[in-house]
Amino acid sequence: MFLDLSNEAQNVDAASLRRVERIGFELPVRCKHGVVRSTVMLKDLTPYGARIDGLDKQRIGEPLTLFIPGLHAKTAYVVWSEPMSSGLEFDHPLHQSVFETLVSDFAIGHHRKAARRPVRRAA
């Protein structure tokens, strides 16, 4: 099998390779990495992972624990890292209803409106 490494193949849009769309957040969350606890900014979220800002460059594969409001501690592993920004993959994906609730409660404005559930009114 021949692997095409031409410029066209190298310029594939990374977003088109994602499993699901990233949802934008601006949510401070607590994070534990090793014995160090800190506050980081949750910048985007999918059921499978997240991007956080606020930590020095992390080692690929390093486990972190995120404390997201309304959830038990969530273990994730670093899949990419740059200075002050890291991409994480959760050890277990978020349940769809949990993910939808987080989007509804904490996502950046335009995503919150799209995810909002219908209001039930009492008779």
Rank of each mutant, 00 (worst) to 15 (best):
N7V: 08
V98N: 00
L45I: 12
R37F: 15
V35T: 13
H92R: 09
Y48C: 08
L3C: 04
I52M: 07
T101P: 02
R116Y: 01
A50E: 03
K32R: 15
G54H: 10
V12T: 10
D4F: 13
D53E: 12
V12M: 09
C31E: 11
G70I: 13
D13A: 05
K74D: 06
C31M: 12
R117N: 03
R22W: 10
P28T: 09
G54T: 10
L102P: 04
L3I: 14
Q10C: 02
I108L: 08
A15C: 11
P118Y: 13
P47N: 00
F90G: 00
L55A: 05
G109A: 15
S104E: 02
L27C: 04
P28Q: 07
D4G: 14
A122P: 07
F2E: 15
R30F: 01
Q58G: 05
G34Q: 10
L42G: 07
I60Q: 12
C31L: 13
D105F: 01
D4W: 15
R51V: 01
A76I: 14
F90C: 04
E8S: 09
S6T: 14
E62G: 00
V78M: 06
F106E: 01
R121K: 12
E21A: 06
E100V: 02
N11L: 10
F90M: 05
V35C: 08
M41E: 12
E89D: 08
R121P: 03
A123R: 13
P118K: 08
A14F: 11
V98Q: 03
L71C: 14
R121D: 00
S85G: 09
H110D: 15
T101F: 00
P83D: 10
A76Q: 12
G49R: 14
N7A: 06
K43Q: 05
R19A: 07
A50V: 14
V20I: 11
K32W: 05
Q96I: 07
K57I: 12
R116I: 03
S85Y: 05
R19K: 03
P28D: 06
D91I: 06
R121E: 05
L88R: 04
G49N: 12
L88C: 01
E89V: 12
L88E: 07
E82Y: 09
I52A: 05
A122K: 14
A14V: 10
S38T: 15
F67T: 11
L42D: 07
D4A: 09
V40L: 02
P118I: 11
T46S: 08
K113P: 08
Y77G: 04
P69A: 06
K43Y: 12
F2S: 03
L55G: 03
A107P: 11
E89S: 11
Y77Q: 12
V12L: 12
G54M: 11
E89H: 05
E89L: 13
R116P: 02
H72W: 04
K43H: 00
S85K: 05
V20Y: 15
S104F: 00
G61Y: 13
G61C: 09
L5F: 02
A76R: 14
L45W: 09
A123G: 01
V20D: 03
V12F: 07
T65E: 00
K43E: 03
S85M: 08
